[in-house]
């Protein structure tokens, strides 16, 4: 059993696929490969079969919804003035604070839905993350990988169920985790955490009925804040700076 490092893998990927693949990055000692939906099956088949790669197993596949990436829950007013520091200002109303049309544009993610695949090569003892964005946001469609790795079956059903990503060519794309007859895709960022409907037993109708949620309200316990400051670099210098003696 040989050992391929993520950096070697990234070089191999670039030299092998050339223009067929997008960006290859190595972060946190893990290689990430971006592939367009059109090339996904072709690239993945090669990743499974080529002796350089031999990714025998699809370990994991999941959907990601990039709506609101990098956005704070309560937007801050402009930072420090002579009057004091920036305060939280009223955000657009929860749930699903903004729709896709009014989204804050984040240059890293121009599209909303992606399927992220984690591959594992037993032979080379290396992992690879493959990300494929769905070209359309309204109806996200990504080709299925069930023909390449059978284990993709349930993962794709899960991603379809939770995110509404359609895996084109999947033999049996049914909902997996949510209730029979569930409406909506609960892990989308614009799906409220408390849900849309609740169930209760109606003694008059003598059955379980679905109603709009009234028993709980949407609440924010801890606000989401994005701090892109140098906390992690400064943490180290602060540790060196023995402020306790000051």
């Amino acid at each position: 059993m040989s050992q391929t490092t993520p950096e070697q893998l990234a070089d191999l990927l670039r030299s092998h696929f050339g223009d067929a693949i997008g960006n290859v990055r190595v972060t946190h000692a893990q290689a990430t490969l971006e592939v367009t939906a059109g090339n996904l099956v072709k690239v993945c088949t090669a990743l499974r079969d080529e002796p350089d790669f031999h990714f025998e197993q699809l370990t994991d596949l999941c959907g990601v919804d990039f709506l609101g990436f990098g956005e704070a829950e309560i937007p801050q007013s402009d930072t420090a003035t002579s009057q004091g520091f920036g305060r939280g200002v009223t955000g657009t109303t929860a749930p699903g604070r903004f729709d896709w049309g009014n989204r804050p544009l984040h240059p890293q993610f121009l599209r909303r839905f992606a399927a992220t695949v984690h591959l594992l090569s037993f032979e080379h003892n290396v992992r690879l993350r493959v990300r494929c964005f769905a070209p359309e946001d309204a109806l996200p469609v990504v080709p299925t990988l069930t023909g390449v790795w059978p284990s993709a079956d349930w993962y794709e059903r899960e991603a379809f169920d939770l995110f509404g990503i359609v895996f084109e060519g999947h033999p049996d794309l049914r909902r997996l985790l949510t209730d029979y007859g569930f409406v909506g895709h609960p892990f989308r960022k614009d799906f409220p955490l408390i849900g849309n409907v609740e169930v209760r037993y109606d003694p008059e109708a003598r059955r379980v009925v679905y109603e709009p949620v009234t028993s709980v309200t949407s609440r924010l316990t801890v606000a989401r804040v994005v701090r892109e400051d140098s906390r992690w670099q400064s943490a180290q210098s602060e540790a060196a700076d023995d402020w306790k003696d000051n």
Binding site: D60, C62, V64, F69, G70, E71, A72, T116, H118, V222, R224, V225, V226, R227, E228
Partner: peptide, 9 residues
């Protein structure tokens, strides 16, 4: 699999 956007969540 953890994706962070720089926030506290």
């Amino acid at each position: 699999y953890l994706v962070s956007d720089g926030a506290n969540k």
